[in-house]
Write a protein that binds this DNA or RNA. Sequence first.
DNA 1: AGAACTATGTTTTTT
DNA 2: ACATAGTTCT
Length: 734
Amino acid sequence: MQQNLFSETPQEHPGKQTGSVITLDALNQAQYAAATHGQGPVLVIAGAGSGKTRTLVYRMAYLLEQGVAPESILLLTFTRRAAQEMLWRAGVLSSQSCQRVLGGTFHATSNMLLRQHGHHLGIGSGFTIIDRGDAEGIVNLLKSSLGLSGAGKRFPSKRVIINLLSGSINKGRPIEDLVFESHIHLSEFIDDFHEIRKHYAQFKQDHGLLDYDDLLVYWQRLLAESEQARNEICSRFQYILVDEYQDTNLIQADIVRLLADQHDNVMVVGDDAQSIYSFRGADFYNIMRFPEQFPDTRIIKLEQNYRSIQPILTLTNAIIARAEKKFTKNLFTELSGDTRPVVYTARNEAAEARFIVHKINELKNQGIELSEIAVLFRSGFHSYKLEMELTSRVVDFEKRGGLKLTESAHIKDVLSFLRILINPWDNLSWNRILLHLDKVGPKTAQKILATIKEHDDPLQAITQYTPAPGWKEGFYRLTEALGEMRKSELAPGAVFDLVMNYYEPIFEKIYYDDYPKRKRDLDQIKALIGGYGDLQSFVDDTALDPPETSSTLEEDEENKRLVLSTIHSAKGLEWDAVFVIGLAEGRFPHQRAEPGEQWEEERRLLYVAATRAKKHLFLSYPKELMTPDRKFHRTVMSPFLREINPGLYELEDPAPTPPSYATNSSTGIPPVQTRKTVKSARVDFTPGMMVKHPFFGIGKVKAVPGPRRVEVAFDRHGDKILHLDFAKLTVMDR
DNA sequence: AGAACTATGTTTTTT
DNA sequence: ACATAGTTCT
């Protein structure tokens, strides 16, 4: 039986190259053992490219072969990418029943389970589910009403604030700890944080708002406190499979524990070296705790790598070998190939971009599809220069990371209409809609809202509101449109058309510059909404589980595009050729990363990036970065790369495209004068010496670990090992 | 006073 | 792309 299953010749997923075909022969023993393990908890710890997700899919297939009903298998993933990957892998198995199980794939924030079990929590029940953007907006509002914003008032970024306020991270711990852990010098803001947190909670309660963390907590409580709910759910899902377990936070781990309350049939897979989500509360010690939570756990290690050729593995092993905390895994591969990874030092970002384009053309000539190439970077904006270059060379690309489809302004606008139709007390959505009216600003919108929210039927009440003469025209157009939309017998698609009828003129006015691009997003939404029977489920699903942008919906032809992605969004994916750009000090690790946990997570991030490559890996960095005031400053290779034995990679000749500066001067950017300052190479550094670095400031020499290196403890940036060939260190007078 | 417009600054990663 | 601050318009 199993024999048949695993040796089945897989069919390729339409439009995707599977790259490798897995048969029983290619499964290593451990993988096989994990996949076919009968009952009880299993923990699979595995390295990159070892087939963790595949093992889960095989397990699923095995269970189905054993006659387990698809409905009783629950596949949990905690990242969107992982869910996508799962679907991709299932294509390899091409088994009908597998597809059925995957239809039930969802991640932990999904409302689906709750809805199926009558514990519906969401828009229709008087709550509004808010995303990060909404939360940031609310914090801004609170900040100004508390007098914490305004000229001269310094305050940490909204990101930091939201992370600190977020429930899953700070569960049960005082905010002081968090401030400490966040490695940001926030002590001066602690009182303000307390204040904001209090008001934020109150605000959410007053307005019936729920964020992702609230939903997780809700689910956890439901399972923990209601025996009936727990029994119901546990008896339905007999087998729980969890992917990317190292990315779970404490609440999610608890949910997994509760879901398997009665049977312990859990298999989780994860890799501690790929834990890159600690900033949002993920705790890779969850993996280590798993055997305690589930007694009699079988631990299975997967050490064979099926993805990358040996030279790439050797380099990535070297990257992670420097990690302070890791659980030893010995990765090996049987794949053949001896192309060493390439490191490229570019004069500046423009040169780096040209290098990428040049190499991509080379790879294409070698027969590698554009869709089998990816460019990865630490932060969204690192690819700006490259995006410009690619656009000018007409290379088709797709950028991942950054905004979700439903987080962009125009989509939110349209969804706002649908949301108030279901929940007419949804203040946030009303506000959005009203602000679009000419001459109506925040104050006027507030006034209108205050009047209509007292009524049993706000949608009716708004028609009775008397607008000021200046904006009555637009207002009546709105109320009329709303009147049409609320006719209950309309199908979701028809409602959408009505919304577009009203919204399109406004839309064209606001986004006159990139109208067509955004219009395509709206067309996607229309396509999506057509598949729903009622508005309620559509709105719930988009609130909790936003659909992917473009690629998944589009045709295969369109799919042959280069992928630009943040490393975080590339997790779990793989390509024949991978470029990791911006590997410069100050960019990777990012400027604010401080030694310790944060630094280590950055290292793992680079590890994740480099392990995405199957055959070709290019690492590049610019020697100059542009500062916001359009000046350049010099920088050096990222410390993570500097630590690596140069024998493990190839240095690319720094002039791939002939007169590179000709093009540059035509853009009006003058070549930069790099004045050689005092050559630090001549000085003999001894421990205790005070030195000054143009970027890190003042520090004290700690040690001289090698002939060309010096370790310096900087006041503000912590310990760094500097290469005297690059670092412009000056000795200070004592 | 409030709305609309303009200039300027900022960006780690995100379920 | 978006938030904020400062200015001008109604």
